[in-house]
Structure formats: C-alpha cells, structure tokens
Amino acid sequence: MNSPAPHITVRDLTMAYGGYVLQRDLSFAVNRGDVFIIMGGSGCGKSTLMRHLIGLKEPAGGQVLYGPMSFWEAEPEERDRMMRRFGIMYQSGALWSSLTLAENIALSLELYTNLKPAEVRDIASLKLALVGLAGFEDYYPSEISGGMKKRAGIARAMAIDPEILFLDEPSAGLDPISARLLDDLVLELRDSLGTTVVVVTHELSSIFAIGTNSVFLDAETGTMIATGNPKRLLAECEHPTVRNFLTRGEAKAAAKPGEVPAPCFLT
C-alpha cells in the first residue's frame, strides 16, 4: 500500500479572502498513512487550509496535488472523482438533520455503489458500531448528544472507505475520555485501512498522541513556520511561537530583539 510519492502535495499555496491574504507560500507534503496535523493559533487559517485541500475553496495561488494530479487544474469530472475519495468530518458534525444516522451514512453508498439496500444498511450499521454508536441507526441528529454527533460525523466520513480522512477539530468539545477514544479510533483506522488522515486541531494531547507529521501556520507572519513530526518539533524547534504553542506557553520563549527567528522545517 505504501508508495514513495506523497499522497497530497501543497505547492506555494496562497489563501486569500478577496484582497486579504490569509496565508502565503505554503508548501508541504502528506505521505500515505500519515496522520497529518494542521496546527496554529486561533484565526491563523487552519480550517481555511482544509477547505482548500477538500476542494471547497479555490486557492488564490499555488497548487494542491493528489498524487501527481493537480486538483484545481483537473477537469470537473476528474475533480468529482478525486473528491469521492475524501471523507470529511466538519467541525460541528454537519449531519443532515432531516435524515437518520443510518441514512446519513447510506447516502453516499447509495450514490456511488451498486449495493443492495440491505447491504447498505449493514455497512451503515458497521460504521456506527466502529464509532461506538451501535443501535442508533434510526435516530435523528437532533436526538443525540454533541459528542455522539461528532462520532456519527466520523462514521459518515468513513462511509465509502475513503483514502483520505479530513477531520476538522475532532476532539473540540469532547470530554477527555471521549477525545482519547477518538484519537485511538483515528489510529486504528489508519493502521487497519491504511487511510491517510489530515486533522485540524489545537488540542496538544491529540497532536502528540496521533500526529506523525504536521504544518504550523502563523497568523502574525501569514505563512508556515514549522513542519515535521510534532514530538520532534517539541524537542528540536527553536522558533519561539512554535515552542510556546507546543508547551502551552510554559517555555516563555521570545525572539531576540531585532532578529527574525528562523522557521524549522524538519524532514
């Protein structure tokens, strides 16, 4: 399943809302089977970067490549085919409120496979069981708790066994034990299905527990200031912003006056 070519390559990406440039010169690669963390302080553009990766927002400049294919230069049909290989969990779950949990999961199975209704139902039940929601098939999203909605959101994202799973703030708003279970689930999926996982988060415990690679976006300079394995970044990175972030501010690191701290791109 492993191939040397990166699964996702981001090249000189510029993200902008109208004339306002949020981040520029983003270049990094996500390998197959990586748990890739997009991190940074609030408002630095983490979720926006994810919207660029999943094809909801067109970059102001630069490219997003899946394997050798450039997403935004591809034909619309090809782009649809690429998007079908993504599983996405949105920050609030974004479950369709007029459908039951089973129907939420079944929708993409019905669209993209020729399975019989009973088989679709079995797969939906399996996905719900995988996230610990066995028996909740006929519940509507409004009838379950916030944490359950998150898990159901992951079950929906996994519906057609995606190659890449995008998770936007998966553990925000969850109790520590549920957050831990969610981390375990992500690793389990990666290990058993070989799924590449891209996670937007600023939960430090999650970052260190599951992250194998990462990019750090800085709001102040409007570009990335670190890449690499989060644990190694904690040990090796000298950039004050990254240090403060990864130690919860305890490092009290500060740049020397008049000096621009060097970014750390670990390979």
Partner: peptide
C-alpha cells in the same frame, strides 16, 4: 488479516445499549 481483526474488535467493542434500537 491483522487490520480486519482489529476493526472487528473495534466494531464489537461497544456493545449495543439495551433499549436503544427502535
């Protein structure tokens, strides 16, 4: 396969709560 076994374990890890199903 190992991956299959792990997912099967995960799927059966949280038993269905009684009275959940409608």
């Amino acid at each position: 396969p190992v991956g299959v076994n792990r997912l099967l374990t995960l799927a059966t890890a949280v038993p269905e709560r009684k009275g959940t199903r409608r």
